[in-house]
Simulated assay, not measured.
Amino acid sequence: MRALALCLILVPLPGWADDILVSSRVEAVTLFPDGAAVTRSADFELPAGTHRLILADLPRTTPLATVRVAVEGATLGSVSARRDFVLPRGAETSPEVAEAEAEVERRRTALDAAMAEISRIRAGAQGAEARAAFLGRLSQGGSAAAMGVEDLQALARMIGV
């Protein structure tokens, strides 16, 4: 039994580590002809112990192979960079987050409806322009003068005038 307790004390268990979300800010940017170097920093205080810091605010276009991490006043363990990391979540969503998500969905639905209305209006305008161009070509060729009234009315109904 003592051997098991000793092993548990000596072996660090990452499962017991705290996950801490850290926000960073851009400190410096150096531009090069073929890219840029962006230095970000984040200030945070941690209690003693093992922690996993999650820097989730890097731009999606950041080449993961170029990410370097340094810390002051602490020991840095392993560093990994992933695009598919899912932030830790509690068992339930807070009312504020649920309300914000509902608002985002409501605005997304409103945006989709507005975009559909814009498409409908543009399609109507393109149709009107096409009808006007057709009637303009018809009158230029003298074809309209040769047509009877009933034929012109049928043609107008056909093109939606």
Score class of each variant (00 low, 15 high):
108 R>L: 14
47 P>H: 09
42 A>S: 11
67 V>M: 08
119 S>M: 09
85 F>S: 02
47 P>N: 09
44 F>W: 07
96 E>Y: 08
43 D>K: 01
94 S>V: 09
123 A>E: 15
45 E>R: 13
108 R>N: 12
66 T>F: 09
43 D>G: 10
80 S>G: 10
139 S>M: 13
80 S>Y: 00
129 E>P: 01
122 R>V: 09
143 S>G: 14
93 T>S: 12
57 D>I: 03
118 I>G: 05
60 R>V: 06
67 V>C: 09
84 D>G: 04
41 S>Y: 05
41 S>H: 07
100 A>Y: 10
35 G>V: 05
130 A>P: 02
46 L>S: 06
29 V>Q: 01
47 P>E: 10
45 E>S: 13
117 E>K: 15
60 R>M: 08
102 A>W: 05
37 A>Q: 13
36 A>C: 03
89 R>F: 07
127 G>V: 01
28 A>C: 00
112 D>F: 10
79 V>D: 10
28 A>Y: 00
34 D>S: 10
105 E>Y: 04
134 F>E: 10
35 G>E: 02
92 E>L: 10
39 T>M: 07
92 E>F: 08
36 A>W: 05
93 T>P: 04
113 A>D: 14
29 V>S: 00
77 G>C: 02
38 V>D: 04
120 R>T: 12
135 L>W: 08
52 R>F: 08
85 F>E: 08
129 E>H: 11
72 E>Y: 02
71 V>Q: 01
121 I>V: 15
97 V>R: 14
125 A>D: 14
99 E>Q: 12
110 A>R: 13
61 T>W: 11
63 P>V: 03
85 F>P: 00
76 L>P: 01
134 F>W: 12
107 R>H: 11
61 T>P: 01
56 A>R: 06
103 E>F: 06
91 A>H: 06
50 T>C: 03
113 A>G: 10
88 P>Y: 00
56 A>P: 05
49 G>I: 07
77 G>V: 00
53 L>N: 04
115 M>V: 14
106 R>S: 12
125 A>W: 13
117 E>V: 07
53 L>H: 05
120 R>A: 15
76 L>K: 04
111 L>E: 13
97 V>C: 03
53 L>A: 09
33 P>A: 03
115 M>H: 12
116 A>D: 14
37 A>K: 11
95 P>T: 09
107 R>G: 03
82 R>W: 01
62 T>D: 08
111 L>G: 09
115 M>N: 14
96 E>T: 11
60 R>F: 11
94 S>K: 02
32 F>G: 00
74 A>Q: 10
82 R>T: 11
51 H>A: 08
125 A>I: 15
41 S>A: 13
114 A>K: 11
115 M>R: 15
32 F>T: 00
36 A>T: 02
28 A>V: 00
129 E>I: 10
114 A>V: 08
50 T>Q: 10
105 E>L: 14
81 A>H: 03
136 G>D: 13
48 A>N: 02
117 E>D: 14
128 A>V: 10
125 A>N: 12
116 A>T: 10
88 P>N: 03
50 T>P: 02
110 A>C: 06
70 A>C: 02
132 A>V: 12
120 R>D: 14
143 S>W: 14
109 T>Q: 15
37 A>L: 12
111 L>I: 05
128 A>S: 13
117 E>C: 06
137 R>W: 07
124 G>R: 15
28 A>I: 00
142 G>E: 07
48 A>P: 03
55 L>G: 03
126 Q>S: 14
140 Q>N: 09
34 D>Y: 07
119 S>D: 15
